[in-house]
């Protein structure tokens, strides 16, 4: 277990739009990789901005290596961390000048710049790119230069905001390897945001799920919003005009529900069991993830569920795309928040 590098207590950030990020407690240990997952607007980028001192919290306290942010010089803290944005901006100059921009801010001896730049470019696989004009680079190269620019600063914490969006699959594989390499070679704590839960699990030591500005314990896949209804003493959540999910809850009104993909049972026909949720759907997408297979099923063309089955089950069942399938899960498998 590493030491606490960042910690937040009762952190609240409110916006005029009504959105609020509300995190009672969250801690990041040094040298680990954290994946922040959640849908758009969940507050992932807001949290990164707060931790990187790019925004000020409305309430709450933040700690860097167990010292209050308010007791430290904000510039000193910011210089121990850096962030690569979702759509990184490269200055209209050479790759070398981009990479050394942060060194210039820190007044690092100019003689050291070429070697440091060379090393960072080597790590991201862009050896010899120093004199290229940065804005003329491809999307993947831009992302890599942005990472090299962050890496050259040898930050204690590296924030990566949606680093894997809008880039080719080949580059995604490369970036995933790169993230691991940076963490291992530089002992950097990495906190990245993503929509892709399997990727978050693949890369991170810990996955943190954010929904509507709050950290949730349940899965963020199969996440739906709906209203609790009670019919004949049983509760259900209406998640679309035709689909209601049986649940067990004391809550009323609007709620969010989630069903962990591994809790969903797939079958060719309807099965008689104690599980109260059973829907017929059509397989829309199949994705192999090592020993497991992620299956996306559309129900009534309204709602899409994600199920996780083993590779063996997948092979035995024979599940072609666009075929009919039944999905079943228990009311107790539904997390409500």
């Amino acid at each position: 277990m590493g030491i606490s590098v960042l910690r937040v207590e009762n952190l609240i950030k409110r916006y005029e739009s009504g959105f609020a990020l509300d995190i009672p407690h969250l801690e990041f240990q040094s040298g680990r990789i954290y994946g922040l997952v959640g849908p758009n607007g969940a507050g992932k980028t807001t949290l990164l901005n707060l931790l990187n001192l790019l925004e000020e919290p409305t309430e709450g306290e933040m700690f860097f290596e167990e010292r209050r942010f308010t007791d430290l010089d904000p510039l000193d803290i910011r210089r121990k961390m850096t962030m690569v944005m979702e759509n990184p901006f490269l200055f209209h100059t050479t790759v070398f000048k981009n990479i050394t921009a942060g060194l210039k801010c820190r007044s690092v001896d100019k003689k050291m710049w070429p070697a440091m730049s060379k090393e960072a470019l080597r790590t991201v696989g862009l050896k010899g790119f120093e004199n290229r004009y940065a804005p003329a680079l491809s999307r993947g190269e831009t992302q890599r230069v942005a990472i090299a620019r962050a890496l050259v600063l040898k930050p204690e914490v590296l924030f990566l905001d949606e680093p894997f969006t809008n880039i080719r699959q080949r580059d995604i594989d490369l970036f995933e390897k790169l993230t691991k390499t940076i963490n291992q070679e530089y002992q950097t704590t990495i906190i990245f945001t993503t929509h892709d839960l399997p990727q978050a699990h693949r890369l991170s030591d810990e996955v943190i799920s954010l929904v509507d500005g709050r950290i949730i314990e349940g899965s963020i896949e199969n996440l739906f919003e709906g209203t609790v209804e009670e019919i004949d003493g049983t509760q259900s959540v209406k998640i679309s005009p035709k689909i209601s999910v049986s649940v067990i809850t004391e809550k009323r009104g609007k709620v969010n529900i989630s069903i962990a993909p591994r809790e969903i049972i797939l079958s060719h026909g309807a099965i008689i069991s104690s599980a109260r949720n059973s829907f017929k759907g059509i397989i829309r997408k199949i994705q192999m993830e090592g020993q497991t297979v992620i299956v996306n099923i559309s129900v009534d063309e309204e709602v899409e569920f994600t199920a996780l089955i083993t590779e063996t089950s997948f092979k035995n069942m024979g599940l072609p795309i666009d075929s009919e399938i039944y999905l079943t899960f228990k009311s107790t498998s539904v997390t409500i928040f």
Partner: peptide, 26 residues
């Protein structure tokens, strides 16, 4: 000027004057 310039400068550890210079240079 691209709004990302200021944020990029801050994430690179620029102080207020350095941030202003980054924006002016762009």
């Amino acid at each position: 000027i691209d709004k990302r310039v200021e944020k990029t400068a801050l994430t690179l550890g620029a102080n207020n004057l350095q941030t202003a210079l980054f924006i002016l240079m762009e």
